[in-house]
Computed example of a mutant assay.
Amino acid sequence: MDTEAQHMERDPSSAPADGAEEGSRFTHVPDRSADSMSWGRAVFLGMLCTVALLLFSAFVLQPFLIPSGSMEPTLKVGDRVLVNKLAYRFGSEPQRGDVVVFDGTGSFVQETPEGDAVTALLRGAAASLGLAEPAETDFVKRVVGVGGDRVVCCDERGRLGVNGRSVDEEYLHPGDKPSEVAFDIVVPDGTLWMMGDHRGKSRDSRDHLGQPGGGMVPVDRVIGRVDWLGWPLGRLGSLEGTGAFTGIRPPGASHG
């Protein structure tokens, strides 16, 4: 009897069932490290995009949520506008008729509101993306007078006057007067006289005449010019300019 041949025979119990290959007995273990890497990559890309958007908003084009009706009908509550931060970066300055966003600290707001620093930071980030209302110190108004201008209200026909010329303000809210309050001011150099288009609902330079600064907004407090409407879709497009101030000459120049 060949005992060596018996030892060489394979134990039938060790054979793969149904003729399956021997390698199929090994269970496949999912590679969870690949999923973790995919999630990590997605989170990193999301953070990178957010930072890029914040930088773009901080230096180039910032969405701004309109919080009140002070600029109706030009801008309505809930509108999201795009503020061009490069408009006054290279030597240009705000012109009469421009609609601008500015920091009213020291002019419209005498003291900076106190609050939790972390909450303020998160709110500021959301506001800079147009997802939340702007800070209490940020305002949107129309430039009516620039440095050296004499702005008077009102003439015999109830119109605003700038440097001796009456202004027909076609952008005013229907039914509004240019101002219920009479004033006669000269805008100091380096500052601006701001007014809302809905004069009956706008707290603007007129309301701060008796306060420090006299309601004048320093040019360097201007954040940017409102150039486009980004939302709602039905109002999407560039903000229409105004010809109301065409022909206004510098102070002291005679009108022909």
Rank of each mutant, 00 (worst) to 15 (best):
W39M: 12
G230P: 01
V100N: 01
E93C: 01
P63D: 09
M195A: 08
L229C: 06
D116M: 12
Y171E: 08
G215P: 02
K201M: 11
D138G: 01
R80W: 05
G78M: 12
S179R: 01
G124P: 03
K141Y: 10
L172C: 02
G69P: 05
D227W: 00
D31Q: 14
P174G: 08
P178Q: 03
D98H: 06
F90V: 00
V152H: 15
V77R: 15
G19K: 15
S24L: 13
D116L: 04
G213R: 03
D35C: 06
W193R: 02
R235V: 07
T242P: 07
M37G: 11
T74Q: 05
D35K: 10
V118K: 12
H198L: 07
C154P: 04
P178I: 02
P250T: 03
L55G: 06
D227Q: 14
P30N: 11
T74K: 01
A20P: 00
S107V: 09
G215C: 11
W231L: 09
M8V: 04
S57L: 00
R80H: 08
F64K: 01
G130K: 05
T137A: 02
F139H: 13
R142K: 13
P212V: 02
E72G: 03
E4F: 07
A125F: 06
S205N: 08
V60E: 05
A135G: 13
G124K: 04
E156A: 10
E169Y: 03
G106C: 06
G106P: 11
Q110Y: 12
F64A: 03
K141L: 06
M1R: 03
D31M: 04
M194S: 01
F59A: 12
S202Q: 03
D227H: 11
E133D: 12
S179E: 10
R225K: 15
V143F: 00
A20N: 12
N163C: 04
V43W: 11
R225I: 09
G175H: 14
N84K: 01
Q6V: 04
L121Y: 10
L160F: 02
